[in-house]
């Protein structure tokens, strides 16, 4: 068991190195001289030379990569070209809204999707089931931002019950204003997760309901409610948790778009602003940051399987 945990933790290292290599090579393989790409269209020869010097672009590529990885290991994601601030500092400034949006979205999605999927499985073939399946196909087909604008149109512009955009911190501005502003973005972003998780919950509960121990539980006269909560849901947990892990990738993409629609000053906005300003160290740093978050969350999920299902032993 301990051995498995150690091996699993170590296995993230080659993946992280590969991600770093991809991100590193991306800038080098782009057409043209990286220094002049970074400097932009209106740069002078001195600007290009300065950036070349700053990034150490004159050294052999292997040396450049190793030096870059060495600074990554020390927690240095690079320095913004325009503001001159370390990328880690910029991430620190912007992470709260993104984290809050992600947390509220996942919470809301799980709270809605798991009961919905369970109900659909329990009444397979019924009207509820059809609705859930329809919703789960539809949820994958509407782009996040279109959904966001539809909700803004209904709740902000027509009914006037929720704000059009903005973000309020729960720590400095209070929990009330925070919830008031975060509701629409969270609901928007959670639709695709509700679709994903409800579908998975339904499939795995249906599978569990066919197991012998469910029949035994029914035979001994246990109530349907207890069968659901005590037997079906617990055993259906592993695939559901897995799909939440897969969903993290979707969430990261969705966060960028949702922050843009609702004008939330988080990491997504930081990326887009960096793209417009061609501030590549920020883009590079953020891609790495998000990739490492994804790898870390999936590590946690893999390790959590033993807690969720005692049958899984390594």
């Amino acid at each position: 068991m301990t051995r498995y945990i150690i091996m699993r933790v170590l296995s993230t290292i080659p993946v992280m190195v590969l991600v770093a290599l991809f991100v590193f090579l991306m800038l080098r393989l782009a057409p043209g001289d990286p220094a002049s790409v970074i400097a932009g269209d209106y740069a002078t020869a001195e600007d290009v030379a300065r950036i070349r010097e700053q990034l150490g672009l004159s050294d052999p590529i292997v040396v450049q990569f190793l030096r870059w990885v060495a600074s990554l290991v020390q927690g240095d994601l690079g320095t913004s070209i325009f503001s001159g601030k370390p990328v880690t500092e910029l991430i620190g400034q912007r992470i709260e809204p993104t984290l809050m949006l992600a947390l509220t979205t996942i919470t809301f999605a799980v709270v809605v999707a798991v009961p919905l999927g369970t109900l659909a499985a329990f009444r397979a073939g019924s009207l509820v089931d059809r609705f859930v399946m329809l919703f789960s196909v539809g949820g994958f087909s509407v782009p996040v931002f279109v959904l966001g604008y539809i909700l803004i149109y209904i709740f902000s512009m027509t009914l006037g019950v929720l704000p059009v955009q903005g973000y309020k911190s729960p720590f400095t501005e209070g929990i009330g204003p925070f919830l008031y502003h975060i509701t629409l973005p969270s609901v928007t972003l959670s639709v695709i997760f509700i679709a994903l998780i409800a579908r998975m919950t339904r499939a795995s509960v249906i599978e569990v309901l066919e197991e012998d121990y469910i029949r035994t539980a029914r035979a001994k006269g246990q109530s349907e409610m207890k069968i659901l909560t005590r037997h079906a849901l617990r055993n259906a947990a592993v695939p559901v948790v897995t799909v939440i892990g897969i969903g993290i990738a979707l969430l990261i993409g969705g966060v960028v778009v949702t922050e843009s629609v609702f004008n939330i000053p988080g990491l997504g906005r930081l990326v887009l602003d960096a793209v417009l300003a061609r501030d590549y160290p920020i883009i590079q740093g953020l891609i790495l940051f998000f990739s490492f978050v994804y790898i870390f969350i999936n590590l946690i999920i893999d390790l959590s399987y033993t807690l969720l299902d005692p049958r899984i032993r390594y």
Binding site: V19, V23, A30, G253, V256, I287, F290, Y294
Partner: peptide, 11 residues
Amino acid sequence: SIPAILLAIAM
């Protein structure tokens, strides 16, 4: 492991 949208934006 690299978020698809970010990778696409960067490329």
